[in-house]
């Protein structure tokens, strides 16, 4: 007889349920079975009504983020073996996002925040394509390289109590992306992005809990990016104050 593992999976069916509830499934154990494999096994063999998101199975698409025993994780990058001997294995939809169905979250608020910070190269003068690429040295690239590894999985938003408290907070990934472009030597859009960073819902809602950086599957370290953004916003505030004192308009 093969060894099985009990997986408690959160269910929420908007047609029938008023709130989420947990359903237990028995999954055959194997060393190399990921949580995503387990969920797919349940959907394919046991209950086709289970809804969950996934695509690449290799921690690059960022679709399969769920809470596993209370921690935001990618289901494809987490394995049954990691929970062997634990009392329970519980899979829920990501914290802090509305639950669309079962394990499927509505992350549109997060996507809106990403767009807000204008995460693309902004140039005062776009050079024509014929002029070739905007060039930068490896050292210049290194300054933002780590912050550009984000896969938009939303784990950091599930980890962030300030986003949980106030969904208007731009949050870890969006502010990291803002910092990533502000640090890019080819970009000239920092002053536009600073308007968002300087706001209460920008960097100033962050209290450096730091859990976002702990759960990031790509070691992006959003907490560091946001707090470097605070330094930038701090300087921006002082410069602005100085300009007001000199009789110039609020920049």
């Amino acid at each position: 007889m093969t060894e099985t593992v009990t997986v408690r999976v959160q269910r929420y069916r908007p047609e029938e349920d008023q709130e989420p509830w947990a359903q237990s499934f028995e999954v055959p154990y194997s060393e190399d079975l990921s949580i995503l494999d387990a969920l797919n096994q349940i959907k394919d063999q046991q209950d086709p009504t289970l809804s969950h998101r996934w695509s690449c199975r290799m921690a690059i698409c960022g679709s399969c983020g769920v809470m596993i025993n209370g921690e935001p994780r990618l289901a494809c990058k987490t394995f049954l073996r990691d929970y062997r001997g634990k009392d329970a294995l519980e899979v829920r939809a990501l914290d802090n996002f509305p639950i669309e169905r079962d394990l499927v979250s509505d992350i549109s608020g997060f996507i809106d925040h990403l767009e807000t910070v204008q995460p693309w190269l902004i140039r005062s003068d776009e050079q024509p394509v014929s002029a070739g690429a905007y060039r930068q040295t490896p050292e210049q690239m290194q300054r933002y390289a780590a912050f550009s590894q984000c896969i938009n999985c939303g784990l950091c938003y599930a980890a962030c109590p300030q986003f949980g408290r106030d969904p208007a907070f731009l949050g870890p990934a969006a502010l990291t992306l803002a910092q990533r472009y502000n640090l890019d030597s080819r970009d000239e859009g920092a002053s536009q992005r600073m308007n968002w960073l300087n706001a209460e819902a920008g960097v100033w809602s962050c209290t450096f809990v730091g859990y976002c950086s702990q759960v990031c599957p790509k070691d992006v370290d959003p907490a560091a990016a946001i707090n470097q953004g605070k330094v930038a916003s701090d300087i921006n505030y002082a410069v602005n104050l100085f300009n007001i004192l000199r009789g110039k308009d609020d920049a």
Partner: peptide, 19 residues
């Protein structure tokens, strides 16, 4: 569509060692 909105509980910080 009837998304279930998860509201943060006042005791959120008790439920995770990092918090």
């Amino acid at each position: 569509r009837k998304p279930y909105v998860q509201r943060q509980r006042a005791d959120w910080w008790l439920r995770n060692p990092a918090y």
